[in-house]
Amino acid sequence: MSAPAVPMTDAPGNAARKRPRAARPRVQHRGAILAFVLPFGTLFALFYLVPIGYAIYQSLLVIEREGTFGQATEVFGGLTQYILVFQNGPFWQSIGRVLTFGAVQVPIMLGLALLFALLLDSPLVRGKKFFRLAFFVPYAVPGVIAAIMWGYLYSPNLSPFSAVTESINFLSADLVLWAIANVVTWVFVGYNMLIIYSALLAIPGELYEAARLDGAGQLRIAWSVKIPLIMPAIILTAIFSIIGTLQLLAEPQVFRSFSSAVTSTFTPNLTVYSTSSIPNFNLAAAFSVVLALATFILSFTFLKFTQRKEAK
């Protein structure tokens, strides 16, 4: 079928081949390609690339005033804002806080998600459809709404579990971070479970049969056959979780109305938000840039690290 088609229209695979009558290598279907790529390309440039550039530009400016009450003007200040960022104690405390949060919450959440996915994929569980749906339902609850709901569940007098919440104050300075971790876990376990589960479904069944014939039990199959094969999916969920953790905003912002322990600089993004409402846009822009870079480096390093480990 494709053989007679070649002289008239090049298949994409052959497009690189020069045609004898063209003076220079011509791109096939140039107009169509532009029509396909331009809508997304334009919006991506406008709402991704330009803002990134603009944030970097803003972060290099400082406000200068003539005298105390003089006219304020923005002038180029080099890395002044970045020096302020590095001297800003609360910002680094907030980074430390979300890193602690991530180091505990991400493994717990992904561990649960992996456990449920493996159980759903094993012959041990009946009613898979029901469990899959029940565990996934919290993902339909927006972070803000989940935080409001759990805020009431934690509160000492309104909670349906007041027997517990009267003796343990989940909204105290010591516990509120882990109270938020529980909200995030509640929302995202089911989502991560589905990603891992669909990776499990893609494994051909013959692989298990071979292991079973060798006398391997469910645990052994899960550990030595399934988990290595779905590692890419687990890594993917880990990266998205790391990014999500560093960006934590909605849940702590909501918790501010339940607990005074959540300060305006509780997480890095809250710091960005409160700095920009001062308003100190240049410093807030510098915070944003540092945070985005940190996120990028952390997820990229994690990706490289796990890939190298897998190669061994």
Binding site: Y48, I52, A285, V289
Partner: peptide
């Protein structure tokens, strides 16, 4: 772009 968190863009978008 997948690795750039959307929240990092919110503030510069506001300024623009």
């Amino acid at each position: 772009g997948v690795l750039v968190p959307a929240t990092a863009l919110a503030l510069p978008l506001f300024l623009i």
